[in-house]
Design a protein around this nucleic acid. Structure first.
Lengths: 241, 241
DNA sequence: ATCGATTTGTCCGTATGTATT
DNA sequence: AAATACATACGGACAAATCGA
């Protein structure tokens, strides 16, 4: 029950009450919690106060709301899947080796003038063209990472013609007789952009691990620049030195 | 001005209005924005609606509030400092090379029985002892990373005696004639633990980049396991393959 | 050091809209 | 179509922190 004279904000007390009910199992994963009105009358506080408490718990990922349905207990964090990055990585093969089911889908692509940071990373002239591919990869049917991949158009003539038959990046490289290798990777943490949050089916307040990579073909030409966005609740990335 | 019939939530429109004033310079960094009451009457919306708009902009880091003083325009994000990780890294030297001022401080240390995950990572027996060091590193006087470093006690006899004279990890290794190399690193994103947030002087809702590393001495023995916690608003970590 | 004005924080009440069941 | 649940918006009140006269 809410203590009126404790000086502790009601919404804060209510957050703790709900948290306790989650940890001691009175509220279970995926279960609907009482509606705002019900909580409001049960604990004798205004509905706005309830909304404030629930809002905070949603922002911290402990609950989630669905308009018209209710508010639900979020899934507890699962064990992280460790994805091993190497100079020459094939997502599909790597996941299969780990005994999981990979899936890869090209969500969208277009040919554009290289954005500044891409041109810089690949050492391209300011007006050079690149293919920009949005790729989502799943592990065991769960969204795992979202990549924006930029490929130097000059190195891949005619790609636009058969990119729709896309199966995998390695397949494209094979078709051009290329076998690029990673030369640099940059790791950072952040919140997802909206596009990334949508593709990964995560809330905007869940951190993501972003990995920028630059790949070089066997003849020494920088050919691919990508930014991969990993769900922090599902993925970690490892390297062996 | 707020469009009443557009179907776009008022608080959303107000967010955009404030954002525009920030980007076009009408509101400058550190400057106080009009009070809630002033905005409320200027744009003819309720004070709560103003609070909702401002609240969102605070959560996304564009504004910050000070009770009794007002609401202010936050600093734009600074460029991330890229820290290059290699098999044999000396923080102090690396930062100096980049033309910045490094600083390293041992916040605490103790000798303990190896925690499970540490014993696992270092291949130690369950009851082996390790030194646990809490180290904070600064770049240009700003907290940059916080590390928990675990050193195999068996490999460093008598360390307890002079650890207080700690200058740097490389100095300790030198004293034992060791020159360990990184063998594995694991990257993930998360929120900081409270201890980490305090040491880095960041709020608990700022993501951090965590890097676990295992180091092996030149004779092939695993000797150090560390978890480094980097501020996502200041640091990114790169590797060359 | 005090007081009053200002500003944000918390809380209550109410009404209407929109999505889901 | 009706009921339910969350989303947005308006109104008012008092508390707590800050600042300047």
């Amino acid at each position: 029950m809410i203590e009126r004279e404790s000086g502790i904000p009601y919404y804060w007390q209510l957050m703790e009450i709900i948290r306790r009910q989650i940890v001691n199992g009175r509220l279970k994963e995926g279960q609907r919690i009482p509606s705002e009105i019900e909580l409001s009358s049960a604990y004798r506080v205004n509905r706005h106060t309830v909304r404030q408490a629930i809002g905070e718990l949603c922002r911290s990922g402990e609950l989630y709301k669905q308009r018209g349905r209710g508010t639900f207990v979020a899934k507890p964090p699962v064990d992280l899947f460790e994805y091993r990055l190497s100079p020459k990585t094939s997502f599909t093969d790597d996941i299969r080796e780990a005994g999981k089911t990979p899936d890869s889908r090209l969500l969208a692509w277009r040919e554009v003038t290289a954005p500044v940071h891409v041109a810089e990373a690949l050492g391209l002239a300011a007006d050079e063209r690149v293919f920009a591919l949005d790729i989502r990869r799943l592990v065991n049917r769960q969204p795992f990472l979202f990549s924006k991949v930029f490929l130097s158009a000059a190195r891949l003539p005619g790609l636009a013609g058969f990119i729709d038959k896309f199966r995998s990046l390695p397949a494209i490289y094979d078709a051009y007789g290329l076998s690029p290798r990673r030369v640099k990777s940059v790791f950072r943490a952040s919140f997802p952009e909206q596009e990334e949050a949508v593709a990964l089916d995560i809330p905007g307040n869940l951190p993501v691990l972003k990995v920028e990579s630059v790949l070089k073909s066997q003849d020494g030409v920088l050919i691919e620049y990508s930014v991969s966005c990993y769900r922090s609740d599902f993925a970690k990335v490892s390297i062996d030195w």
